[in-house]
Amino acid sequence: MVEKRPGFTIVAHIVLIFGVALVALPVWITFVGASHDGARMLQAPIPMWPGDQFFENLRQTFFGRGLDGSRTAPVWMMMFNSLVMAMMIAVGKIAISLLSAFAIVYFKFPFRMGFFWLIFITLMLPVEVRILPTFEVVADLGMLNSYWGLTVPLIASATATFMFRQVFLTIPDEMLESARIDGAGPMRFFWDILLPLSRTNIAALFVILFIYGWNQYLWPLLITTDPDMMTIVVSIKQMLEASEQTPQWNIIMMTALLAMVPPIFVVIAMQKLFVKGLTETDK
């Protein structure tokens, strides 16, 4: 702060607290909704203060068959699917990007730049613009309703490759020279020197990619027709549709809460890595 203006500082805090409250309001309402029984959630006005049914709703949602009238799997199963999808996307993206960045930075071979541009182009082809033909490819390969179909088409990554390329370029050449003098081959150098040196970058990227994977919507929507393969984020849509006939807002809100908690937890628990990952992948 530059000058002493206690009045203005108080105003700043009031505005910030108001802003935080405004941003948190929808989640508060969701939490309150998830803590009352179904009958209470059908009377307007809906409560603003939590009720005592939270754990009962949690039990019903987590282990039950989800909602009456919608074909959804138990929520724990969908959360498991989401977890597998998020992990496979994050690990897969990091693994193949590390390898290709290593090849592009540390080897001189014909078509090196060609490969680089090929990877670059993926940046310009988000899944939303090539929905139908990509779906056809996955269907032809028989990968519908499988974890492979959910994840493999999403794991090519230009941003991750660029970020690792950037990291590798900052590693001094002397590292490689001394490793070679000591008789290390390329893969030995990769495992023993490059990987440990880029550990924080990998962790930061993992946080971002986990959230990205968990929150995928359009792709799982197309690929999973079998309720047992559905992810929790996609199931919300099914529940909202079913809610038009039999509204069970307590169950819907509990499912929404369960779908939000893992990625929010990751952001808050690993805030430093999250901020680092977010600012670095966008450069």
Binding site: A103, F107, K108, F109, T122, M187
Partner: peptide
């Protein structure tokens, strides 16, 4: 490219292969 680098061999092609394969099958072709 690094000033110091490894000589050309089959290895770099193997390293970029997964990424390039996925790019070709699920991005370029569609």
């Amino acid at each position: 490219l690094k000033r110091v680098h490894f000589p050309a061999s089959l290895l770099p092609y193997l390293l970029v292969a997964p990424q390039v394969f996925i790019t070709l099958v699920f991005f370029i072709w569609p």
